[in-house]
Design a protein around this nucleic acid. Structure first.
Lengths: 324, 324
DNA sequence: CTGTTAGCGCGTTCAA
DNA sequence: TTGAACGCGCTAACAG
């Protein structure tokens, strides 16, 4: 207690709470601040939370922390949270390799609200959303009256890649799809199908794969060695899948992009680590984190949080080329 | 308040705290539990923390969340934390692109202890280590009387790679070193130097590089096009650097591993995404997280936490081959 | 075996 | 302008 610090106690609260407009004298304020500095005073968060009923902490639920995308979403959310005196704690959902089942057991900090990223709607039911303010990132926006959403223009991004391949003259395009049942991946498949149909090109042969390099390699081998004319382009749902596709091509003696073009999605660090560098679509991951946190903040303040949709940009690089 | 739930209040505390061995009757216990279920009762963490003076939460400080290694350390730490009713909150240190300066502002949950991973000793001074129990991961163990440490046998790992290249017949080995001033990287350089000297092989030409692919590529180009005989192997401090090295080789018209061998360190997902797959050293990331949390738990319980050193294993893959 | 009481550190309201 | 008193929800000690 900084009452040793000269004057009183409630005064301290006023000063450190910046609420002394016309209540405390300048001199006293300086005294309190000095004392607080000397004693290295730290307000007790637990007591403050108890009194205020709020913890100024948000929970970010992600399917898997090891995917670079979510680390960037976290960074974005943490940035704007910090600007408002909020904290963010991570909860890697059990759907991934996640350790715990209950966020209130794992990230046991008390929580004012939840931000869920790229989660299946039902996986979220497990979360203790007992009336907690909730914002959904990169999720199905079609729920009327549902929580506020911050979305990526995933469909448009996928359309851009498809068109890019089409423009390069490709007509036999295989789609390496992630077999993850979330909105973000369902939309990708739909967009590819629709865009191809609109161009009057035969529907893509589709192979599904788990989200890892080895599985993607196998899927791509299947796509490339299927009966009938060989695809000239492999359109992948994710950079990780694209990495597997490149390996598959090489294993079959095909060169990228000379014999087969490969495109990714996400623009992970991986995309430029590969050789040739991956044509892919950049996702504004930090930005979606920032918008998500802003929406949650709005919710907590009782303000409405209008839905947001963030644009994606195609990054043509060396892994795609004209059909020769 | 679950006192509406039948009996009393302190009784509830006992029941939910599993401390009613010979204090409360079976019947009452059932009544309390039923009521708690009906009312969807959630103990208030803030109040509990206030009363107990402990938050059962640990802070994990990492240099950068986007590096897959730290995500895995977190997963390990979170796993054992959860087993003990603890939570883990992440604090990406400002040294990286991190958002905030003060962990008590950013990850504002109150903290019982701190686990610092791969941090420079001085960067840690900024952390509010005001007498907080501290465990250091993958850090300089040479501080006597310092905090408990959990270390990786980094030197041994680096020795294994060096020996591997030596055994393959390489005599002109260039070292692509990360220019990050932390123990873990300093040790790598020392180990390479020592092992080469022990084998009576000329010291490695060394190029330093920031920890990203583009910088590594440039560094590797410098190493490969330096005056004098060209190195036949590129020994890299990290898989990311190795990815850059592979690109450099190819840009110079050299084949990996036929013309030049490349080795990495960390066994990231990247290592098997590349083609050829990277010879690298596997780091038991989850394991170091687990041991770190265990050590912190020991500290909090007043038990001593003996230093731990975890072994590393060499993973020979396709990016290294005999000198032809 | 069960209920009562006190106080953790803070913000706030009320009286001086 | 400031000090004193109350209560947030919980648990540990003690009284019944």
């Amino acid at each position: 207690m900084a009452r040793v610090a000269g004057v009183s106690q409630a005064t301290v609260s006023l000063v450190l709470g910046e609420k002394w407009r016309g209540r405390v004298s300048e001199r006293t304020v300086r005294a309190v601040r000095a004392a607080a500095g000397e004693l290295g005073y730290r307000p007790n968060l637990a007591a403050r939370s108890l009194r205020l009923g709020a913890t100024r902490t948000a929970l970010l639920v992600v399917p898997a922390l090891t995917h670079e995308y979510f680390a960037r979403v976290y960074a974005g959310a943490a940035k704007v949270a910090d600007e408002h005196g909020f904290g963010v704690v991570l909860y890697p959902s059990p759907a991934g390799i996640g350790p715990a089942r209950d966020p209130f057991g794992s990230a046991r900090a008390a929580i004012d609200g939840v931000i869920a990223s790229s989660m299946a709607a039902d996986a979220l039911a497990g979360i203790g959303d007992g009336g907690l303010p909730l914002v959904m990132l990169d999720s199905d926006p079609d729920i009327p009256g549902g929580p506020p959403t911050v979305n990526l223009a995933v469909a448009d991004g996928m359309r851009q890649v498809t068109r890019h391949l089409l423009d390069l003259g490709h007509r036999r395009i295989a789609h390496i799809a992630a077999d993850v049942d979330t909105w973000t991946f369902r939309v990708r498949t739909e967009a590819v199908t629709a865009e191809l149909a609109a161009a009057g090109v035969p529907a893509a042969a589709r192979q599904t794969s788990a989200l890892n390099v080895a599985a993607a390699r196998d899927a791509a081998v299947r796509a490339l060695s299927a009966p009938g004319p060989r695809p000239t382009a492999l359109l992948c749902d994710d950079d990780i899948l694209a990495a597997g596709a490149c390996k598959a091509a090489r294993a079959l003696g095909l060169r990228v992009p000379d014999d087969v073009s490969v495109s990714g999605f996400d623009d992970l660090a991986l995309a430029t680590a590969l050789d040739p560098e991956l044509t892919t679509v950049r996702l504004p991951a930090e930005s979606i984190g920032e918008h998500g946190m802003s929406a949650l903040l709005a919710l907590l303040a009782g303000r409405p949080a209008p839905p947001v949709e963030l644009p994606l940009t195609l990054l043509p690089r060396a892994s795609t080329a004209s059909r020769t």
